[in-house]
Amino acid sequence: MIQLNNIEKYYENGAIKTFVLRQLNLEIQEGEFVSIMGPSGAGKSTLLHILGMLDTPSGGEYHFYDQPVHQLNERQTTELHRDHIGFVFQSYHLIDELTVAENLETPLLYQKVKSNERKGRIAEMLDRFNIVAKKGLFPNQLSGGQQQLIGIARALITNPKLILADEPTGNLNSAEGERIMTHFKHLNAEGVSIIQCTHSEKNAAYGSRIINLVDGWVDADERTSS
């Protein structure tokens, strides 16, 4: 599904190049649940953003299915990630001015889904995550765990093939975190590929593969028993 060849990312500050990712090669198959680990500043988030086409690499090739992402323009990559990828963030990133239901609706609007179908899918998501009662509330009226649930629901509502999660439990207490990870586990079982960044060994263990990133290099890449 994902094929990275010699991906580089650096920031230029005057004559000095600061590398975040160096000569990264990576292949991820459909259906995998990958955890990316590593110390702060190892390039985890950057890698995730590049995979999600929110950021462009400074060099190298990126194939998503058969598409050469590095050769596409902004409009094409937007289409690609819109239709295939869902994002979950550490700080949830819900739109404060919109209610729960409206937040869920936003991705569907950009996919030009018809009104009736939108309502159906929102209802389905609310139901699935058991948050029907919260649909009229604004994000700041919810706890962190609840917000993250909405975040996941929003990522799933477009039926993506891939979920990218950047420290999804980083701001949550352990009970909330566990619930979220369980959700991911179920999703993966249903066939959704998941790539998450995490600091937590415990959370990483939910996945089927752990990639250790150090200073922009892949330091270790191993499959877990689970």
């Binding site: 999600g52 929110l54 902004e74 409009r75 937007t78 289409e79 990630h81 819109r82 239709d83 994002f87 990133h93 819900l94 739109i95 001015e97 936003t106 991705p107 950009y110 996919q111 929003r154 477009t158």
Partner: peptide
């Protein structure tokens, strides 16, 4: 800015 980023994430064209 966050709203802009988010909308782009969920698939908004510029």
């Amino acid at each position: 800015a966050r709203e802009v980023g988010l909308r782009k994430v969920v698939g908004a064209y510029r």
